[in-house]
């Protein structure tokens, strides 16, 4: 009943990431600032995609504010998450780091 809405939201004009508001599947065609990009993988709601090409060391901007730095390069439309960015304050942890019964592989 409503017109289709983009699965990506830009929260602030200065941002270099977009937030996923509807789940994306690998192969989906995405429009990022007029550039057509094919999604490389499934990405769930709440995650971030690169709005432009980012290099290791670049600050990641969301809400118009820095939320950390890239640790590896990413292309436009690539997933920006734990594998390629880090905090500039306190390191984030995963269950594996903590160990215990959920730490095994």
């Amino acid at each position: 009943m409503s017109t289709p809405i983009s699965p990506l939201i830009l929260l602030h004009p200065d941002d270099n990431v977009l937030v996923v508001r509807a789940a994306i599947r690998a192969g989906d065609a995405l429009d990022i600032d007029g550039t057509r990009v094919t999604a490389a993988q499934d990405v769930t709601v709440g995650h971030k995609l690169a709005r432009r090409t980012l290099a290791a060391g670049d600050k990641v901007l969301k809400y118009g504010a820095p939320i950390g730095s890239m640790t590896a390069a990413v292309d436009v439309g690539g997933h920006v998450h734990m594998h390629n960015m880090k905090s500039d304050y306190i390191a984030s942890h995963t269950r594996q780091v903590v160990g215990g019964s959920e730490g095994g592989h």
């Binding site: 971030k48 939320i67 950390g68 998450h81 500039d88």
Partner: peptide
């Protein structure tokens, strides 16, 4: 850990 699964990456985010 659930914060990261939900798409958040860093403390400041």
């Amino acid at each position: 850990p659930g914060n990261a699964e939900g798409g958040l990456t860093t403390q400041e985010e």
